[in-house]
Amino acid sequence: MKHLASGRCLCGAARFEIAGEWESFFLCHCARCRKDTGTAHAANLFSSRAEITWLSGRETIKTFQLPGTRHVRSFCTECGSALPSLQLDGALLVVPAGSLDTEVGIRPTAHISYASRASWDDRLDAVEKIDELPS
C-alpha cells in the first residue's frame, strides 16, 4: 500500500500518515458539519481501503459521536483541530482535508446536503478575494 498523505493538528501534538487511496471527497453543508467546523461546510476525504498510522499524540485525540446519529468528529484536545477518525465500526476512514500537510490529490466529488446550506453560502465566487490578512 503506497503512502498517500500525512498530516497533523494545529499544535503538532497529533501526527499521522495515511496509505491507500481516496474513494470520495465530499463538501458537506449540513447544520451538524457547519457546527463542527464553524464554516460553510466540512471538507472530508473518505476511504474504505486506506490505513492510518498515528505517529504521535494519539492520547490527545477525543472522538465525539452525536447521540442517535452517524455524525462523528475527532479532534485534538490540546488545540481543537479536526482529525481523522475510523467510522462504521472501523470500516471507513474519514479524514478532514484541512488536517493534511500534503496535497489532497483529488478534486471534491460533490457538495452534499447542499439544500440545507447556510443562507450566506451563495455566490461566494463573487466575494472579494484578498491574498493576505486584511489591514
Rank of each mutant, 00 (worst) to 15 (best):
D122Y: 14
V127S: 14
Q87A: 07
T77W: 02
Q65T: 09
R73G: 07
G7Y: 10
F75T: 06
A82C: 11
L66W: 05
E128H: 07
I18C: 13
P84G: 11
S119Q: 11
T69C: 03
R58G: 13
R117I: 03
I61Q: 03
L92P: 07
E103Q: 12
T63P: 06
C11A: 15
W120R: 02
A91L: 09
E132W: 06
F26T: 08
E128A: 11
D122I: 08
L86T: 10
P67I: 04
F46W: 00
T63S: 01
L124Y: 04
G68K: 07
P96D: 07
S85G: 14
A97K: 04
A31Q: 14
S56T: 04
P96T: 09
S99M: 09
L27I: 11
P84E: 14
A14H: 13
L86D: 15
A115V: 10
G7H: 05
L88I: 02
R34C: 03
L83T: 14
K62N: 06
E21R: 10
L124M: 13
P134C: 11
C76L: 00
D121F: 15
E17H: 09
C11L: 03
L66V: 02
E51H: 05
A19Y: 01
W54A: 07
C76D: 09
T69V: 02
L27N: 12
P84Y: 03
G38E: 02
M1N: 12
V72E: 13
A50S: 01
I61W: 01
L88V: 15
A14R: 01
T39R: 09
L93V: 04
R107G: 10
C33R: 09
L92A: 02
A118Y: 09
Y114Q: 07
V72S: 06
P108S: 14
M1C: 03
S119P: 10
H71A: 14
F16C: 12
R123T: 02
G80A: 04
V95G: 02
M1R: 10
G68V: 08
F46Y: 14
P67R: 04
A97D: 13
E128I: 00
R34W: 06
D125R: 04
L133D: 11
F64E: 01
L88K: 08
R70P: 03
S47I: 01
H111E: 10
A40N: 00
D101T: 04
S48K: 01
A50K: 00
S99F: 11
A13M: 13
A97N: 08
R117E: 09
T109I: 00
E23M: 11
E103S: 06
G7I: 06
A13N: 10
G38K: 02
P84Q: 06
T37R: 13
D122F: 15
L4Y: 01
L93S: 10
G20Y: 00
K35D: 14
I112K: 06
N44V: 04
L45P: 00
T39H: 05
H111V: 05
D36K: 12
V72W: 05
E128M: 00
S119K: 13
H111N: 15
F26I: 11
E132I: 11
S119T: 15
R123S: 13
T37Y: 13
A50N: 04
P96G: 01
G98L: 11
